[in-house]
């Protein structure tokens, strides 16, 4: 039944069908798989306009500069000394190999150390309050009345929670790798360090973002969510470290959110104290933190209506 759109809508108590032949948009649409990227892009744009994010990024850039200068100096020094009158000639091959190995280990460790505080602050600011803010504002309605599934929404929030921290960490890693290449390493060695460093950064930020979003999904109060996240990171670290020392079990020290990634990085660098079956504990701890937090957030999102009543 098609009539002119200019016709006045008919009205009747009997409930007559009033078709005015409206034709909806039938042009191209992008795949819903792009939704996480769209959510993340706009969230990152909005975050960049917040003072806290700007400050954390500036702190990150400052630390990047300091660490790059310090590590550059450390790696350049043997070259300078060995080439000078005080160096006593060229270094022996085993000594050189050990120095290169240590240098590559430094890349992983220093990337995480340099950016831990800014990354924590950025995830705290961008991730721990993200779902809480949407809960408080009721902004789910803007997303979920569109073809957006809770899983895609969560993926978008994950990307936006860790986006700026990832950019900072990767920039740090890249600078350190370039320095390695300039002073000590071969292209292959620098590439290897970059690959392992990328994995380490992703492990750290994935677990941190997941936990931040998990706690964020529990409450409408952004401040409370941020406090809970900070408590998990710092109190968890103190708790497991103390417990590990008390019962003299090194593996217990790797159970908290931060240490599990540090322990895996130590394993990458072949200087982990964990042996045998215990070697799997940091990875398992990481998996429990990440999967558990994501499952919690997913469950809360799938029951979003509960939060609104």
């Amino acid at each position: 039944m098609a009539t002119s759109p200019s016709l006045k809508p008919a009205s009747s108590p009997a409930g007559v069908v009033h078709s005015l032949a409206y034709t909806r948009y039938a042009g191209p649409r992008r795949s819903p798989a792009m939704v996480p990227l769209v959510i993340a892009r706009y969230a990152l744009m909005a975050q960049l306009r917040q003072r806290g994010v700007k400050v954390a990024l500036l702190v990150g850039l400052l630390l990047l500069t300091i660490f790059a200068a310090a590590m550059g100096f450390k790696w350049a020094l043997p070259t300078i000394v060995s080439g000078s009158a005080f160096g006593g000639g060229a270094m022996a091959a085993p000594q050189l190999a050990e120095m290169v190995r240590e240098g590559e280990a430094d890349v992983l460790t220093m990337t995480l150390r340099a950016q831990f505080l800014p990354a924590f602050l950025l995830v705290l600011w961008c991730g721990a309050g993200a779902i809480s803010a949407d809960l408080m504002a009721g902004a789910f309605q803007f997303h979920f009345s569109r073809p957006v599934s809770p899983a895609r929404y969560l993926a978008g929030r994950m990307l936006s929670a860790s986006g700026w921290a990832l950019a900072l960490s990767m920039a740090t890693l890249l600078v350190l790798c370039i320095e390695r290449l300039a002073f000590q390493s071969t292209p292959l060695g620098a590439a290897r360090a970059f690959g392992l460093g990328t994995v380490a950064v992703l492990l750290e930020l994935t677990s941190m973002s997941a936990v931040a979003l998990g706690v964020s999904s529990l409450t409408r109060r952004k401040g409370l969510a941020q406090a809970m996240f900070a408590a998990i990171v710092f109190a968890g670290w103190v708790l497991f470290r103390s417990l590990g020392a008390l019962i003299r079990a090194p593996w217990v020290k790797t159970l908290d959110l931060v240490s599990c990634v540090d322990a895996m990085v130590s394993q990458f660098n072949h200087d982990s104290p964990l042996r045998g079956a215990q070697a799997a504990i940091p990875a398992l701890a990481w998996l429990v933190w990440t999967a558990g937090a994501l499952a919690l957030a997913g469950w809360r999102l799938s029951r979003a209506e509960v939060n609104r009543v």
């Binding site: 009721g138 902004a139 073809p147």
Partner: peptide, 20 residues
């Protein structure tokens, strides 16, 4: 999801993405 493509919804809330 297919139905939601045909749906527009203006909720009652007044707070949304303030930085945008």
């Amino acid at each position: 999801p297919e139905v939601f493509r045909k749906l527009g919804y203006a909720p009652e809330i007044e707070v949304f993405f303030e930085e945008l």
